[in-house]
């Protein structure tokens, strides 16, 4: 039995929840706070917010959203986008984030991983890796798939955890937003390269896609965005699938109290 987590991923641009296809062609979905509260109530184990234009503008603008959500929603939250310093991470944690996700900032200055990990603990330090397959290698990209870093994904995952990252969030850009399944080979390889939890993201469109992830990889969690935002899959569908594969799903408070004596 695995304590597998279902993470609702909310990508935010100018305070609006958006969803892109392969990190391009963004469409507006709605108010991230409303979606966050609904997903948590429906059984999401965790929420992940990313300010998708933070790197462009050199700052994260999610502070108020994080504060608002943390005031009403009592499940863990990971926040990413534009984290460039220990101070940036500290501000987001002070707003109610439980973890910060580093991406561009870490690829430019890998020592930042160690600094954040030593200051706030490895459990608060997540490294997000976005990768595309290029000539048979998974290569690390940043800025929503626009910039090549020249790093190989497996090497970078290992380096990031050696430097103190407590978790890896892995997105296969060529699968992202399409709902046609995940890159299971990539997920397995990264899981084999590191000892920390790996969150698989990008490509879930059906219950079978989640089933395949559970059967074929040792991933610790999945991050789902588009399939939830456009009602292709519900958290019930995802929870049923996790449960059907013999893994633990958290009982929901409302269900437990109405079923109690």
């Amino acid at each position: 039995m695995r304590n597998f987590r279902l993470i609702a991923r909310l990508d935010v641009k100018m305070k609006t929840l958006i969803k892109g296809v392969q990190m391009e062609g963004w469409r507006k979905v709605g108010d991230p706070r409303e979606f966050a509260a609904r997903y948590a109530a429906e059984g999401a184990d965790e929420l992940m917010f990313t300010d998708v234009v933070a790197s462009l503008y050199q700052r994260n603008s999610l502070h108020q959203i994080v504060r608002d959500v943390a005031s009403e929603v009592f499940v863990p939250m990971t926040i990413g986008g534009g984290v460039r310093s220990v101070g940036d991470a500290g501000e987001l944690l002070a707003c109610g984030a439980d973890k910060v996700a580093l991406n561009t900032g870490a690829t430019q200055d890998p020592a930042l991983i160690t600094e954040i990990s030593q200051t706030f603990g490895a459990q608060a330090c997540v490294v997000a890796i976005e990768t595309v397959r290029y000539e048979g290698e998974w290569m690390v990209m940043t800025d929503n798939g626009r910039n090549h870093t020249g790093r190989k994904a497996l090497d970078w995952a290992r380096e990031a955890t050696d430097r103190g990252a407590g978790e890896i969030i892995l997105t296969a850009i060529d699968k992202e937003g399409l709902g046609r399944g995940m890159d299971l080979d990539l997920v397995s390889r990264v899981c084999d390269s590191v000892r920390v939890p790996v969150v698989a993201a990008g490509g879930i469109g059906t219950k079978d896609h989640l089933g395949a992830l559970l059967e074929k990889t040792p991933a610790s969690a999945v991050a789902v965005a588009q399939a939830l935002h456009w009602n292709k899959l519900s958290l019930d569908d995802l929870r049923d699938t996790v449960s059907a594969h013999g893994h633990f799903v958290r009982p929901l408070g409302a269900v437990a109290s109405s079923g109690g004596q």
């Binding site: 040792p218 969690a221 633990f248 958290r250």
Partner: peptide, 19 residues
């Protein structure tokens, strides 16, 4: 303690929900 037990696939830090 983490044992090399592929079946349990237990990873540290442990992050998640448990009864």
């Amino acid at each position: 303690p983490v044992e090399d037990d592929a079946a349990s696939n237990f990873r540290v830090p442990f992050i998640g929900w448990s009864p």
